[in-house]
Design a protein around this nucleic acid. Sequence first.
DNA 1: TCATATATGTCGCAC
DNA 2: GTGCGACGTATATGA
Lengths: 262, 262
Amino acid sequence: MDGVDTDWRSGAIVNPSIAEAESAIKRKIGSSIVVVAGSCSAEYEGRGSSSSTEGDKLLIVKPDGAVIVHGPKGFRPLNWQPSTSHIEISETGGEMLLKFVRRKPRETLLLRCRDVWFVAWIDSPEEGAYWMYLSEEDLREAIVRHPEELLGEKIRFYVKEKRTPAGRADIYGVDGQGRLAIVEVKRIRADERAVRQLEGYVREYSKNAAVRGILAAPDISEKARILLESLGLEFRRIDLKKAYKLVKRSKPKSVLDYLDST
Amino acid sequence: MDGVDTDWRSGAIVNPSIAEAESAIKRKIGSSIVVVAGSCSAEYEGRGSSSSTEGDKLLIVKPDGAVIVHGPKGFRPLNWQPSTSHIEISETGGEMLLKFVRRKPRETLLLRCRDVWFVAWIDSPEEGAYWMYLSEEDLREAIVRHPEELLGEKIRFYVKEKRTPAGRADIYGVDGQGRLAIVEVKRIRADERAVRQLEGYVREYSKNAAVRGILAAPDISEKARILLESLGLEFRRIDLKKAYKLVKRSKPKSVLDYLDST
DNA sequence: TCATATATGTCGCAC
DNA sequence: GTGCGACGTATATGA
């Protein structure tokens, strides 16, 4: 074995024996991000079932119990476990067995490693602040605040995310003619599901009065458009860049607030 | 620096200087799975936008151009790139910059690393065979082949995934009384969306004749059940274990075929 | 805890 | 390539 182990916040051992790998993993798991590379097979049994024969695998175990197994290709893991309630590490017949169990839903992931190429770790990893912008919530906010710019007409919105028996619609308002307008917002191209959802909300209210159903999205699929028109609903194309500028201008403090708190 | 570099199929250098890290990454990228741990910030701009401030990150770059950035928590990566068309590695002001560009859609991922904890790699990684079973397709197949065992009645199915203007229903058949039966299959607990979908397909056909709409799933949410009953649709609880046994028994060769071909 | 809705969703398949 | 629905979807949020 050719090993390196230090007092630093991270370390690695290269080409360890199975026993050495096992000991290092046991010592580091729970408090560190542990990365194990080796020639392993994997079996998963839970909501579905999967199996992979021996091949090079990269295993990542995080302090919060997240487990990720990557193969040589693709960005999606072969197997994973969002949170693991129980971990067993053992050795049998020159193989290292790693068993990750999750309860609710009951799932088990079993790794069987014949060779370990390296074990590496980062102790007590620190998280950076993270944010995304122009979320669907931001877009809703932009439409509520700037209906004329984004929808092309004046609508006074008086409630966001109103509940109805059929579910929850995005925003409700009153248009220039005093009619109720129900607006379903999508940050991405609207599909048939969005139309059906909107239809459900509109139907709920149209029992009592005439109601406009408006689908606001940057784009709409052809099938969704046909369905929407056949149901007497309206589509408003949203300019995301415009919305982004409006949100940025109207509440730039949201990001600053976040930065200040970190 | 405390480094290890060998002739083996894998290796690692621990606590390298920025220059050493850069050189190792440049040498290994493309042919190896490269794992880099360090204190980095990341910015993504493309279909969405995200930003994370300095913190411990784990970067994985695979030979096929897949890039994955993990933080200390959760099973989902902070950032990723399914395939990268262009990679730039450089050094500025004591920081290592890693820029990953993807074309179509145009996306860029920029990592800025102030410290590198380790760089590790697996050369020419080998893939094992992989398969999954009891997918939704398997379940559909099981219902088509064994309607009596799984739905509790004889239905002769004559087409799978028929297209309708409202979309695509799972399976269509004729029941004992000669009525058209449209079956929507869900491998997991059915929700309101599933009911709405089924309703759409049924409505499409009920213009011409009486049609039964059957939702087949291992479970159904309470709200979905209420909606389903109010729409005059039916629910059939599916025993997944029974379905699994039926599929395994009826076509065990699928797995064997796969094994033979590897 | 359950239910709902989003996602840089991704993936696979039909057109 | 686009369109569309499934996914071991995971994840956040509200009831």
